[in-house]
Design a protein around this nucleic acid. Sequence first.
DNA 1: GAATTCTCTGCAACCGGTTGCGTGTCAAGC
DNA 2: GCTTGACACGCAACCGGTTGCAGAGAATTC
Lengths: 334, 334
Amino acid sequence: MSDEKPGRGLPTISQVAEVAGVSRATVSRAFTRPQMLSADTVAKVKTAAKSLGYVPNQVARALSTGRHGNIALIVPDVANPFFPPLIRGAQGRADLAGLCLFLGSSDETPEREDMLVAKFAGQVEGVILVSSRLDEDRIRAHAARVPVVLINRDVPGLPRVLIDTASGIGAAVDHLAALGHRHICYVTGPAASWSNQQRRRAVRNGARHHGITLTTLPAQRASFEAGREVVPALIASGATAAIAFDDVTAQGLLVGLAERKINVPERFSVIGCDDVLGATTFPPLTTVSAHCDEAGETALDLLSDVIRLRGTRDIRYALDTELVVRGSTGPAPK
Amino acid sequence: MSDEKPGRGLPTISQVAEVAGVSRATVSRAFTRPQMLSADTVAKVKTAAKSLGYVPNQVARALSTGRHGNIALIVPDVANPFFPPLIRGAQGRADLAGLCLFLGSSDETPEREDMLVAKFAGQVEGVILVSSRLDEDRIRAHAARVPVVLINRDVPGLPRVLIDTASGIGAAVDHLAALGHRHICYVTGPAASWSNQQRRRAVRNGARHHGITLTTLPAQRASFEAGREVVPALIASGATAAIAFDDVTAQGLLVGLAERKINVPERFSVIGCDDVLGATTFPPLTTVSAHCDEAGETALDLLSDVIRLRGTRDIRYALDTELVVRGSTGPAPK
DNA sequence: GAATTCTCTGCAACCGGTTGCGTGTCAAGC
DNA sequence: GCTTGACACGCAACCGGTTGCAGAGAATTC
């Protein structure tokens, strides 16, 4: 029959205790606080444990201590190149802190995100929500259950890490103005996104400051296709340069323009945001560089503080950005 | 003071029992096997639970049942576009099966992968290893502790899902031969990768069959940069077409060629593998399409079978591939 | 009306660790 | 020689659920 429990057969603390000729408590301490025990008792226990292939059961440990060293990171879409560097940054810090990182992808839907947080909540000590699509009430509700740190979402009262693209976007508009562009476009991202609202505002301010005409074109979601499809409208607008919500959208613009044989940057300039594509486009993309990895690192540090100190504080951590000029921008055509 | 346990304050089964005026066992059953109880007892318990905001503690449940509905998926690198579709496929199936998926990224290093599996092993019911860089002994060792399913790694005795690129690569060589190419290059991927060995062999067989000259150029790792850097050697080889280990490498080739003003496909043809970039390159990449999402789905189904039936079988599941012709291939230059 | 069966619920042991408290041992201090 | 304290270890309760077994009523059968 196959009515065994999974994990059945794995040695338990009791078996180790018996082999080593000590109590269960001693075995437990040999692993968690060896300094409480004499050196040779520890050695005896470790030997017995090794001979049995014993490894402490994390689940049982978590039940009695309430700690298991797991944290969750939830992103809208693993396929979006914006997130991997951030994930990697968080992972690196998690390793340092001895934490184990669980990753969830919500496919950009609030419902899935909600479900994920709920499922994770019972099994992790804290959650990092990246670019959450949840409304503020839901976020607060979750935060009441389990420590939450936000990235690119500005909910007062919760610890949050914000990539302040406003400065970089400002520099991007300056850059275009200096090149002589008098009419530019902003191609938007997800309306619900905090980042999009912030970037949109920054472009508007910059344009007003330089007396540049601004057209805003909507792209339903931040995707390559959306960028590509918006190209006809872009050309029709009469603008000579575009700032896209993110690099992926910008890449869509580049391809859409190439298909119409409009040379970049001779006839049209394109600027992205996030700097996640590096120089993998042709021409290499001028973009606003955000330190995504740093955002992940900071969020993790914040979270482990919250967990350690058992109290969440109202921290708003802003990371600044800078313009990286590559080959997709040039002087405005005559 | 802040010496409380995390999770402290969350209602437990005992509190619900007291409020509802029943025993703890009854509360437990109200959630796990309501059909055992009378309808109004269930209602009474649910009401009490809701009023307290009770939600069952997964950790405690896992300890007593040995089941927690968690599984882990470990990939070499989340930043590689090959994996997200696969991840998404697995997630979809996990949702259906009521399983919660944990994701780990090993950064292409066997040590990290080893550590990740060990950390996860105690907290999940099964592990899916994608393109594992571990040696066979380590994989077997882990498989002895926790159910393991492999993707793109061929270890006899373990359930595994293999994307059989041989057929697609064969079609790619046929395609180039039909276009008149007489000398082609294969740009390799990670030497330790099963996929790379398989693809390399398929190119060799195809070339031999058509009597085409084959040059093999090494790219240290599967990356955009590696592809770009190999371009000079590619040109020097005298070949008129290249098949790259994967799409990302192929993209590197495209950019490297564009930088040297070598038009694709007029003067040089490029073929990728995996079909993860879609048409986001310019020109759109001809590539061997692998059904990554399907691989994720299949692996998850296999794993949940193994968990349910408590027995691992020697299953070798091969997914076939096909050539998708887009704009990066054309007739051999005269 | 008694025996039998079925339905519903409680008792208590168990999952595999952790930890506060108590005890025994031994060396140092008076 | 007796007290004192430090040290090393064991006892037993506890974390928050699950589940085999048993017992109380209610329903069914003869």
